[in-house]
Deep mutational scan, measured.
Amino acid sequence: LKKVVALYDYMPMNANDLQLRKGDEYFILEESNLPWWRARDKNGQEGYIPSNYVTEAE
């Protein structure tokens, strides 16, 4: 899975979204639905995130 790091905080707009915290790492599960990607956080929560809020992890 592709790993990304959040560049900004993101508060979910609806139940399908995943909250982002700046500096945290996330795994990308699906990239087909631009600009929204399906992601999983370190706690196993899954949801959609804005792809322009993250960058690929080193």
Rank of each mutant, 00 (worst) to 15 (best):
A6I: 01
N33D: 15
P50K: 06
I28H: 00
D24M: 09
I28M: 03
M11Q: 13
L18R: 00
P12S: 06
W37H: 05
R38G: 03
Y10C: 04
Q19G: 12
L29D: 02
L1Q: 07
M11E: 14
N14G: 13
K2D: 02
L1N: 07
A15Y: 10
Y10G: 01
D41L: 01
V54Y: 02
S32R: 07
M13Q: 15
I49L: 06
A57S: 14
Q45Y: 11
Y26T: 01
S51K: 14
Y26M: 03
P50I: 05
L7M: 10
R21P: 00
Q19F: 07
A6M: 01
N33I: 11
Q19Y: 08
V4E: 01
E30Q: 08
G47V: 01
L1E: 06
N43F: 13
Y10T: 04
Y10R: 08
E30I: 07
G44F: 05
P12F: 02
E56S: 13
A15W: 10
D24R: 06
Y10P: 00
V4N: 01
N14F: 11
E25P: 07
L29W: 05
M11S: 12
Y53R: 05
E46G: 02
N52W: 15
D24L: 08
K3P: 04
K2C: 05
T55Q: 12
F27C: 07
Q19I: 08
Y26P: 00
A57E: 09
E56Q: 11
A57M: 13
L20S: 00
D24G: 07
Q45N: 15
K2E: 03
Y26D: 00
A6S: 05
K22D: 03
M11Y: 14
L7D: 03
W36P: 05
W37L: 14
E56F: 13
L7I: 12
I49F: 06
L34Y: 14
V5A: 03
W37T: 08
N16Y: 12
Y48W: 15
N33L: 12
R21M: 10
R40Y: 05
W36L: 09
G23K: 02
F27Q: 06
M11W: 13
E30P: 03
D24F: 09
N16C: 13
D9G: 03
N43Q: 10
I49P: 00
E46D: 05
Y10A: 03
Q45R: 14
W36K: 10
D24P: 00
V5H: 05
D9C: 04
L1C: 09
E30M: 07
W36S: 07
N52L: 09
L1K: 07
P35F: 15
V5C: 05
Y10V: 04
Y26N: 00
L7V: 08
E46Q: 05
E25V: 15
R21T: 15
S51C: 10
Q45T: 12
P12W: 02
E31W: 14
N33K: 11
P50S: 05
A57I: 15
N16L: 11
K2H: 06
K22F: 05
G47Q: 01
L34N: 14
N52S: 15
A6P: 00
L29N: 02
E58V: 15
R21H: 14
E31H: 11
N14H: 14
G23F: 04
A15H: 12
E30S: 10
E25L: 14
P50W: 09
A39F: 02
F27H: 08
Y48N: 09
S51M: 11
K42M: 14
A15M: 11
Y48T: 07
D17Y: 15
G44V: 01
R38P: 08
N43H: 13
G47C: 02
L20T: 02
E31C: 11
A15G: 10
W37C: 08
N33A: 14
Y26A: 02
E58H: 14
N14Q: 10
K42C: 06
L18M: 07
L34H: 15
M11N: 12
E31N: 09
R40C: 07
W36Y: 15
P35V: 15
Y48K: 06
V54R: 01
V5P: 01
P12H: 03
A57D: 09
L20W: 01
A15N: 11
P12T: 04
K2Q: 05
Y8V: 08
L18V: 03
E31G: 08
E46V: 09
E58P: 14
Q45G: 08
P35A: 15
L18T: 01
W37G: 02
F27A: 06
I28R: 02
S51H: 11
G44E: 04
Q45H: 14
K2M: 07
M11F: 15
K42H: 11
N16T: 14
G44N: 06
R38E: 05
T55R: 13
Y8D: 07
Q45L: 14
N43D: 13
I28T: 02
D9V: 02
Y53D: 02
S32I: 08
L7A: 04
P12G: 06
K42T: 10
M13T: 14
S51N: 06
R21Y: 14
M11R: 11
E46R: 03
F27R: 04
K2N: 05
